[in-house]
Design a protein around this nucleic acid. Structure first.
Length: 847
DNA sequence: GCAAGGTC
């Protein structure tokens, strides 16, 4: 029997498709891949009996990057990123998706691609084909081997129709995605590297370790800064309103609305007022009543969910989507990433509704709705991806954590609301004439709360008073006056408004919108304030203003759509992939070069807002070249700067840097420092010069004294190394004396640390070595605090073999990497690495 | 260390 491999875009879809296509007969087999299951059944394909295997990928299989040597920021001029080669790398190497696909395709005769029906999905088709090319029977690019299923909804009808109507994967669409990837990579990385290096080397109080640029994130920031500028340049204007209040016979005072609304010239407004003052009564010229409706919502999609989560629940989109995903995995809601706002015809609305009828919160509304019959949901938009977001099973508040419950509560109420009636109210407007001027009074009264019964936060307020008056009736004017008002500036952009702007301009997708917003927050370009309003930081503002001075297109949202127009030429086959790519890359290479040439214009803005490196930071340790104190720049990334030598030295990050007993490096005279990520984290002494300029061939940039092979220095690995690492193949466990009295050995390559001899007054590494190959270690305690047997204050032995040491030595993993990682003593199980031989290592160095 | 796009 021949076999067909089918591949979906994600595991959940593979499971759903397998159930539909096999009529529930599919068996889920234990697969070789922990992320992607394989569902199998036997069925008919091309009028023969075929073994079907349905599995999936997890999104893109590959991602684009530069070859390793182009990722050296110090040696590669960013402009070369516009012409250097690129390569596809496995997107998530630990998932081993290509190997998995290749294995599953073995002995298969057909490949049927069920990836999402959009351009990205088309591109993944070709990633899958490439992965199975060498293992599948026959030529994967042949139309008799590979087929593409085109479906627009995950419904029985649609999926089965797709199966009998298979087509071919669309190479043009896939290529357009290849082009987008390459452009985004080249443009983003070139600008990011250039900006980062340029500004970081100049200003000390720039609170940013990365000054990124991207075709989506930068226009996103642009929206926030635009609003900031609108606020800053806003000039309040005075205006005047003629305010008239009438009094009914029962003595109620009604404030009227002026038909002209307002007037920007005081003299003119006064003229109107004078005309009114001549009258004591207003005459009713019209009374009209109109039924109005607040429409029920459309079915819920991702973007609307994120908007409401931000504006109504105070949850950022990133956080909201994390919670939505959790609810989805637990089976409470349907797949939360969808653009669709319309229920498919065979969506079981009643069934989904019935699941909610016993809820203590909205069960009554649901039962009423079921009794009265549901209202036909609004039409909405069918993007052909996934059904709208709906509740899938009932939940109690106690089943979920607070935020999960609030989101579930919203999703469920929204679902019920889409099947409810509109909220209707009667709006009555009375028109009054005073002299030549027209005024109105409007009162609204509720007719039917409709969906607002369940979406209570949108509920209609109190019924408004409607006076019982007749046409042509005259009513006395109680008061008339001129009210002076001022136009007010707009407020900062709310996150919810930003999402709307991004959606409107096609910046990002439903899945990537939260990522872009998160990016501009994490890069310190904007901060999220109360009401989830986005205020740009000084850095964000000067960046955008800088682009506007040099090349405003760089920050315009239209830039993304212009590029996408080019890409569309590829996908619809009107233009050649290479030609479009060459043309667009060339445009951006020129833009980049122009930007570099004119960076001075942006720098002028930075100068005003930030302090130059030479005047930032506080005195720290001495420079080995000029003997003066260098300054410690605390802003990320932390650095040392010698203003006399005009040199900047990078430091190990994410820890504390301290002066280490005023010791000096014997090679360059720089004062030694100690770095520590806390008592349970990694730590080592280092020389700031050697850290940046490794002194020996076998030492790499970014390492401390515990990696230094200096033959005699007391801080080098030759003096303080105890044994080879118990876990990693190349590391050496070295004593870190700077951690005293929380003594520890730390691997100079990986996260292994061994805490030992706490509170000892002295720990030293001896010349002699143990039989196991590790160096002997001596320990001294204060006589009254000793932890050694028989009250000994001193002892020398092997930390791995000496029984008296065993309770004083504990292996751990640095920082919070793994909680409760099995503490084992000594050299670990498995295959012990050859012990470090100091002489051998020295010899290796001198050869 | 960088982009944006999938998805977990």
């Amino acid at each position: 029997m021949r076999s067909a491999l089918m591949v979906a875009e994600k595991p959940s879809l593979a499971a759903a498709l397998a159930t539909i296509l096999s009529d529930g007969r599919a068996i889920t087999n234990k697969s070789s891949n922990s992320s992607c299951a394989v569902h199998e059944w036997t069925g008919t394909f091309k009028s023969e009996s075929v073994r079907f295997k349905m599995s999936s990928v997890c999104g893109h299989v590959m991602s684009l990057d530069f070859p390793g040597k182009f990722n050296n920021w110090d040696r590669v001029d960013p402009v070369t990123l516009f012409e250097c080669p690129t390569e596809k790398k496995e997107a998530v190497p630990r998932m081993r998706i290509p190997a998995f696909l290749s294995q599953e395709a073995r002995n298969c005769d057909f490949l049927i691609l069920w990836l999402d029906c959009d351009k990205e999905g088309e591109n993944i088709c070709f990633e899958v084909m490439s992965a199975v090319e060498s293992s599948i029977n026959g030529d994967v690019y042949s139309p008799s081997v590979t087929f593409r299923a085109k479906f627009s909804a995950i419904t029985d009808k649609d999926i089965k129709a797709a199966m009998v109507n298979l087509g071919r994967p669309n190479e043009n669409e896939a290529r357009s995605v290849d082009a987008r990837q390459e452009l985004d990579l080249r443009i983003g990385c070139a600008f990011t590297r250039f900006q980062t290096k340029f500004f970081q080397g100049r200003y000390g109080d720039l609170d940013a370790s990365l000054i990124s640029y991207g075709p989506c994130q930068t226009p996103t920031l642009g929206f926030c800064v635009q609003r900031h500028d609108d606020i800053q340049t806003f000039k309040p204007e005075l205006y005047w309103v003629v305010g008239v209040t009438v009094r009914t016979l029962e003595g109620r005072e009604l404030p009227l609305d002026w038909k002209r609304v307002r007037c920007f010239e005081k003299d003119v407004a006064n003229m109107f007022l004078a005309g009114i003052k001549e009258h004591t009564e207003a005459v009713i010229t019209d009374i009209s009543s109109k039924e109005k409706a607040k429409p029920r919502p459309s079915a819920l999609n991702t973007v609307e969910l994120m908007r409401v989560a931000s504006a109504g629940l105070g949850m950022g989109p990133h956080h909201a989507m994390q919670i939505a995903e959790k609810l989805y995995i637990q089976g409470y809601i349907s797949y939360p990433r969808t653009e669709t706002t319309s229920y498919s015809e065979n969506f079981d609305l009643i069934g989904s509704l019935k699941l909610q009828q016993n809820s203590a919160k909205w069960g009554a509304d649901v039962r009423q709705l079921l009794a009265d019959g549901i209202n036909k949901p609004k039409k909405g938009h069918d993007a052909g991806d996934h059904p709208p977001i709906t509740p899938m099973k009932p939940a109690l508040e106690s089943d979920l954590d607070n935020d999960s419950w609030r989101l579930y509560d919203y999703i469920t109420r929204h679902f019920i609301a889409t099947l409810s009636k509109d909220c209707t109210y009667l709006s009555t407007t009375l028109t009054f004439k005073v002299g030549m001027e027209i005024f109105t009074y409007t009162g609204n009264t509720l007719l039917d709360p409709g969906y607002t019964g369940v979406m209570h936060w949108q509920a209609f307020g109190k019924n408004e008073y409607i006076p019982d008056l007749k046409l042509d009736e005259a009513i006395s004017i109680h008061d008339s006056r001129l009210v002076e008002c001022q136009t007010s500036p707009p407020d900062y952009l709310t996150e919810s408004e930003l999402i709307t702007l991004m959606e409107k301009h096609g910046i990002g997708t439903d899945a990537s919108i939260p990522v872009h917003i998160n990016n501009i927050c994490q890069r310190n370009y904007v901060t999220v304030g109360g009401g989830r309003k986005l205020t740009p930081t000084t850095l964000g503002i000067v960046l955008v203003h800088g682009y506007q001075k040099i090349d405003p297109e760089l920050v315009l949202p239209t830039m993304r759509s212009a590029v996408e127009e080019q890409l569309n030429l590829i996908s619809c086959g009107e233009a050649d992939f290479k030609a479009v790519l060459r043309h667009t890359t060339e445009i951006f290479r020129r833009k980049f070069q122009y930007f570099v040439l004119n960076i001075e214009a942006m720098d002028q803005l930075f100068e005003v807002s930030f302090s130059p490196l030479s005047s930032s930071g506080k005195a720290h340790s001495r420079c080995g070249k000029c003997r003066r104190y260098m300054k410690y720049i605390q802003a990320k990334p932390a650095r040392l700067h010698c203003s006399h030598c005009d040199e900047t030295y990078s430091l190990p990050q994410n820890g504390t840097v301290r002066i280490y007993k005023e010791l000096k490096c014997p090679l360059d005279d720089f004062e030694l420092l100690s770095w520590s990520a806390g008592t349970k984290g990694r730590s080592f002494p280092f020389c700031p010069y050697c850290f940046n300029h490794p002194p020996f061939r076998d030492m790499k940039k970014g390492f401390g004294c515990n990696s230094c092979t200096h033959p005699t220095c007391g801080h080098s690995v030759n003096s303080l190394g105890v044994s080879s690492c118990v876990e990693c193949p190349t590391g050496v466990l070295a004593l870190d004396p700077s951690a005293a009295p929380k003594w520890k050995l730390g691997c100079n390559r990986c996260d292994v640390i061994i805490q030992l001899f706490e509170e000892a007054t002295k720990v030293t590494v001896e010349e002699a070595s143990c039989e196991c190959g590790a160096q002997m270690v001596s320990v001294e305690y204060k006589q009254d605090r000793t932890k050694l047997p028989k009250g000994q204050a001193e002892m020398t032995g092997c930390v791995f073999c000496e029984p008296a040491f065993s309770s004083l030595v504990e292996k751990q993993r640095a920082v919070a990497a793994r909680v409760g990682g099995a503490p084992s003593r000594g050299r670990g199980g498995g295959s012990p690495k050859p012990p470090k031989d100091k002489m051998a290592q020295l010899a290796a160095y001198f050869v």
